[in-house]
Amino acid sequence: MKKLIKVALVVVCMVSMSSFANAQKIGYINTNDLIPNMPEYKTVTTQVDAYKKTFVDVLQNLSNELQTKGADYQKNQATMTDAQKTAKQAELNDLNTRANNYQNDAQQKVAQKGEELMKPLLDKAKAAITEVAKEKGYTYVVDSSTTTFIVAPPADDLLPAVKAKLGIAATSTAVGK
């Protein structure tokens, strides 16, 4: 009787370990290879670049003004009174501070706009990855663009299947590569 219980217990353990191993299927995908190949990516980057250009133009104007006023100060400082020099230096410092603040603000706004415009694209990619993982029985999918793998079998790379799900040609390469 004890032998039968031990055998049954061993069988139950083996079955549960086998089903656990089968249930924990792990795949990977490199989203840095996926996202730039999505058709919407070019539109998003074009919109972000256009938005960035509005700030670059203003920054260029501020830079030109700073250079012009700085050159004028250098040229005329020998003939200026101390009060005029102090006022001109304060004006140049103020203009420089405004330019730096504007640049920092612009960088934050461009990053924010980029995130806002990329969100639907990232959501679409994530949905496709989730669908493919579910179809193929993967419990976990790791982004290999942010993780270094020592060993990763090509059979578990979901990139080709996700590209197919999104209608991206298998031979597409990332924009800019």
Rank of each mutant, 00 (worst) to 15 (best):
residue 11 V to A: 12
residue 149 F to M: 06
residue 39 P to Q: 13
residue 27 G to E: 02
residue 10 V to D: 06
residue 73 Y to M: 06
residue 127 A to E: 12
residue 159 L to D: 09
residue 86 T to D: 14
residue 120 P to Q: 12
residue 122 L to I: 15
residue 32 N to A: 14
residue 175 V to S: 12
residue 94 D to L: 00
residue 49 D to Q: 13
residue 106 A to E: 01
residue 89 Q to N: 10
residue 174 A to F: 09
residue 176 G to I: 11
residue 168 I to K: 10
residue 147 T to M: 15
residue 62 L to H: 00
residue 93 N to E: 12
residue 6 K to A: 14
residue 173 T to L: 10
residue 1 M to G: 09
residue 126 K to N: 15
residue 36 P to H: 12
residue 112 Q to L: 02
residue 62 L to F: 00
residue 114 G to L: 03
residue 110 V to L: 05
residue 75 K to D: 11
residue 30 N to Q: 13
residue 57 D to I: 09
residue 25 K to T: 04
residue 174 A to H: 05
residue 25 K to Y: 01
residue 70 G to A: 05
residue 21 A to F: 15
residue 129 I to E: 03
residue 47 Q to H: 08
residue 168 I to E: 08
residue 2 K to P: 02
residue 45 T to H: 04
residue 4 L to S: 11
residue 176 G to F: 06
residue 3 K to W: 08
residue 22 N to G: 15
residue 102 Y to R: 00
residue 91 E to I: 04
residue 14 M to L: 15
residue 66 L to S: 01
residue 88 K to D: 05
residue 117 L to Y: 07
residue 45 T to D: 12
residue 152 A to W: 06
residue 5 I to W: 05
residue 130 T to L: 05
residue 25 K to S: 02
residue 14 M to G: 14
residue 132 V to K: 05
residue 43 T to M: 09
residue 28 Y to D: 04
residue 6 K to H: 05
residue 79 T to G: 10
residue 155 A to L: 14
residue 70 G to L: 02
